[in-house]
Every structure is written in C-alpha cells, then in structure tokens.
Design a binder for these strands. Structure first.
Length: 514
RNA sequence: GCCCCGGUGGUCUAGCGGUUAGGACGCCUCCCUUUCAAGGAGGAAAUCGCGGGUUCGAUUCCCGUCCGGGGUACCA
C-alpha cells in the first residue's frame, strides 16, 4: 500500500515554524516512500477564521520547500480539499447519519449553560470532566426526535463505549493505553451543522486514503476518540505519528513572545530556505550518526520515523544563525547576489525591518534597509564584487545590507573609534598622500596584486616596520571602519576613482600635511 | 483535581546491557592573518532527573518518585 500523508492546517493565523516542521516531516516521509503528500484546509471553526492566511500557509510551505501533489491549489481525485467545501458538497452528512442509525452516535441537546454546570459539578466532586452521557446518550430516540422537531439546537456526539481499554500504537512512542471510561463523548457535528475536527479530520483521512497521520503531540489525549470513531465505522485507522512540539528558550511552547515564530518571519529576516528547512527538520528528528548539514534530497533519503524524538525540542536561534551562515557561504555568489536583490526589493522585507525593535548591539534597522536598498540599486557588476567579498562574513541576507554599504555610500560614515585608533598616528597624512599620488600618477588597472604592492611600497617608503600601520589607516580612510574584507581585494573592487575621492576626504579629516 | 506524554553537557542530539558516554551550536584558548569573519587545533562543560530493583554488569529493561509539558471546548 503506497504512502499517502497530509498536512492539514486550520487557517487561524500565519503558520509558525512548529506547524511547518510537521508539514516538512510529511513531505520528507512522502518522498522517502514515493508517496503522495496532500494539502487540506481545515476551516471548520468559522469563529477563528483569519482572512488571507491560506495564502500564508501556501507561501510558508513553498518557502521551506514543502511540496504537495494533491489538494488545495492543485486538485486531485479526492477533492474538494477545504472542509467547508466538503461540508457543502455533502461528504459528511451520510457518515454521521449512518452512525446515528447504527447507534454509534447520538443527538444531544444540552445548552451551554447546562454543560457549564455539569463541568462545575464534576470539578467540585473531583470527577473527570467531560460529557459522559448526560440525559441524551441513552435517551429514547423519540425524545431526540421531539427535541429536533421543536427546533432545539442540538449536536451529534460520538458514543464512546464504556469499560474498555483503548489501545493506540503510536509510531514513535509505541503502545499507549486509555481507559474508555475516562474518554468523554466528543461532539461530532456542532449546532451550526459544521463538523468538528474529531469528525471531519478522521472522515477525510479515511476518504482520502491517508496512511500515516503526522500531528502534534497535543493530540495524544484525543487519539482514543479518533480510534473509537474509526472502529465505529468499521474503518482501519491510519498510523498515528505524534511529533513533539517545538519550545522557546524558556521551555514554554513557541509563541509570539519568543520573537519570530511565524515561518515567513524567517524569510523576512533574511534566512535562506534550505537552511531553515534543514534546521527545523533537526528539531525532533535526527538521521542518526553525526549528520547535520543536509540538502532536502539527502533528508528525504534519510528520513525515518525511528529518528523522530519523543521529547520536545528548543528552538535555538544561535544554531540557526550558524547553519544559515553555512548555507550562505555555500551559495554561488551570483545566486546569492540575485537572492539579496530580490530580498531587498520585497515589500515584506521593508515592512519587517521598519517594525523591528533592535536588540542591544544590533544594527539600526533603517541603516540596514538603506544598505539593502543601495545594494539592490547599485551597478550589478560592482555589487556582485561587494557581495563576493562580504559573503563569508555575514549570516543572513539582511546582514549583506550593512556589510556592503561602504561600497555604495560614496561618503561612508567614519566610525569614531576607528578614527580615534588610527588617524592620530603621525605617519598617516604622509601615507594617504603617498597612496593618492600613486593613484593619480600611475595609469594602470588596480588589481588586488597591484594594490598590495602599492600599500607595501608606501609602508616601505615611510619606513614602517610592519604592514599594519599602513593597512589599518588606509582601511579606515576607504571604508570608515576597522573591519571588513581583505584590504587589497577591497581596494581593487572600489577602483581608483573611488579610492582617490575617499583618500582625499580622509586626508581632510587627519589634518594638514606632515 | 483527573488522564496522557516526556527527561543524555546551556541548546539540538548519537547511543539501543559492557563506550575514556560520540558529534554539532554556543563559550574559552591557540594557530592562520592587515582587521573582522571563515578555516584549523585544543579546552571547559553530562554523577545520562532522582530512588529502588532485574542483571556479573545498567544511560540502555522494570517499578516508584520528582520536575517539565499537553489534554480535560459545539478550537484545532
């Protein structure tokens, strides 16, 4: 039997990385077994619907490279793939009607107030809370008919058998037993006629031929309800794979207060698709051995349920940063440049940084955006060189902005500390003059090699024992800072005109001749 | 309260009865070097939550316990 899995988000917000990791697992598992991955939208809760977030779901999936061969947006033989549409198409009604007839489900007409009262009573008496029958579970069918005829709002509930042990064979945790006396009768069909998750998801999984259900571990406690439902209908349940949750640094489940958690936030922050996918796959899954940096192909080949962790994992941003750096350095410079330009031009990028509150020691978001904008607008040949030189020094696409800005800003700001440190040396005016004169008088292509001999020659002419005193002030004069790419490469990229202009500007800063 | 799941350095993890408990991130030191990165070499960091068993031998198996998390909805 070939593998069919599904990612079934409910459109109540932009999916966060934990959700998307579940989608990734689905994708990896389907690929590993040559199966089909389906995208199904579970929008049965009309109250929590968030407009437009179905797009964000698809965008998030595309961003991390999760593919689906069937379902929302692509169609397939088991459609429709949105539960509200399925409800309209009448796929659920025959199923629950049949359950009603067979006695595995029943109508209940308790009011919300009555249910609330019941729960309070259970709490006070230290009984398990939940609906274990009330007056309706075993009521005379005529009584239910009567209530319906009277137009009372009612729900359909699953009749969970009592006095049994329900056994779940979880794919990563093994056997889990439940006492059916502690499993309450879940609502299958709400008073508004919409099915609940407990009903719709199971029916759809069955109808769509799903073989393995990947879902968060928060579902473990309702699994017995699902098992009972399948059994009531005479259906073979799928294999349940309850994956661990992803937590924030403080140990609590990942949420807004941990900073960026929506999958798309990471795209906005400049993380590379492959790096994020690789990183989140490794929270809760390990291929065994020491493997870490892996392409999607490699992960798909290695993916195995045995490697999934039963315990929750913490999202470690430091490690993501490291991995992003690895991917970024691996990217061919041409692609990286193209990616950076695309990134810089995205509206979401601007929106993201504009709203950003910088942490301590973090580059001012507006400076970052300015650098990004300059990079995108600069001459491609020149910008490519800038990216080439900064590629191994940055961790995200966003970092490329501030890192490269001195290439494009013809009057880069002087870092006060850099000036303090290097512009007060007595030899500096002569050094800058020497370089400027050479650039003005020698008509040649200033390759990195040529620049190196220029600087070395200057150091020698000034009687400097070491290269540092020549290199550092020159760097400050040219870039305004103390850090950056190798000086000679940087000079070659800048070209003589820029160098000359900057040398002169810096000359003014260090005072009049020596 | 009741039910369920989990527990290897700070973090992600390897391990699947016998290992000096391995790797990665982060941290520290050194090397490289014109700076910063990157890279290379080292280092600190885990009584495998704790207590009992089983066993010649337990991180690995069993029980208890503590701590953390989840569920306890006409939300998913």
């Amino acid at each position: 039997m070939s593998v069919r899995v599904r990612y079934a988000p409910s459109p109540t917000g932009s999916p966060h990385v934990g959700n998307i990791r579940t989608a990734l697992f689905n994708h990896l598992f389907a690929r590993r077994h040559g199966g089909v991955h389906i995208l199904r939208i579970e929008d049965t809760d009309r109250a929590r619907l968030v407009e437009g977030c179905e797009d964000e779901i698809r965008e998030s999936l595309r961003y991390v490279g999760v593919e689906w061969q069937e379902g929302d947006g692509v169609g397939g033989a088991h459609g429709p793939y949105r539960q509200s549409d399925r409800k309209e198409a009448g796929v659920y009604e025959p199923v629950w009607r049949r359950m009603l007839e067979e006695g595995s489900a029943y109508w209940a007409f308790d009011t919300p107030e009555e249910l609330e009262e019941m729960r309070e009573f259970q709490q006070i008496n230290k009984k398990p809370t939940g609906y274990f029958g009330g007056v309706w579970r075993d009521a005379d069918p005529a009584k239910a008919d009567e209530a319906r005829a009277a137009g009372k709002p009612g729900v359909v509930r699953l009749k969970v058998p009592r006095g049994e042990t329900i056994v779940l064979d979880d794919a990563i945790r093994g056997r889990i037993e439940y006492d059916s006396n502690l499993v309450d009768d879940p609502v299958l069909i709400k008073a508004d006629g919409m099915p609940t998750y407990h009903f719709a998801a199971m029916v759809d999984d069955r109808l769509m031929g799903i073989t393995h259900v990947f879902r968060g571990e928060e579902w473990i406690s309702s699994a017995p309800k699902h098992l009972v439902l399948f059994r009531s209908l005479g259906w073979e349940p799928p294999v349940f794979v309850h994956v661990p949750v992803i937590k924030g640094k403080d140990g609590a489940k990942l949420s807004k207060r941990h900073g960026d958690t929506a999958c798309l936030d990471f795209r906005r922050a400049g993380y590379l698709s492959g790096a994020l996918a690789n990183f989140i796959a490794l929270i809760g899954w390990a291929p065994g051995g020491d493997r870490e940096v892996m392409s999607m192909d490699e992960m798909a080949e290695a993916f195995d349920l045995k490697g999934i962790q039963p315990s929750p994992g913490v999202f470690d941003l430091d490690k993501l940063n490291w991995m992003n750096g690895v991917y970024l350095r691996q990217t061919p410079t041409e692609s990286l440049y193209a990616g950076a330009v695309d990134y810089a031009r995205r509206e979401e990028t601007v929106g993201y940084w504009a709203k950003r509150v910088p942490g301590p020691g973090e580059v001012d978001p507006h400076v970052r955006l300015k650098g990004l904008r300059m990079l995108a607008e600069a001459d491609p040949g020149y910008a490519l060189e800038a990216v080439r030189l900064e590629q191994e020094r940055v961790t995200t696409l966003a970092d490329l902005g501030p890192a490269c800005s001195f290439f494009f800003d013809e009057e880069p700001e002087f870092d006060p500390k850099a000036v303090e440190k290097w512009f007060h040396e007595p030899h500096v005016p002569r050094l800058l003059d020497h370089l400027a004169t050479a650039l003005e008088t020698q008509d040649q292509t200033w390759t990195a090699e040529a620049c190196e001999s220029l600087v070395r020659g200057a150091a020698e002419a000034l009687g400097l024992e070491k290269l540092g005193p020549a290199v550092h002030p020159t760097r400050v004069a040219l870039t305004g800072r103390t850090v950056g790419p190798g000086l000679f490469e940087l000079m070659a990229a800048l070209g003589s005109d820029r160098m000359l202009a900057r040398l002169k500007r810096a000359r003014g800063k260090v005072g009049v001749g020596a």
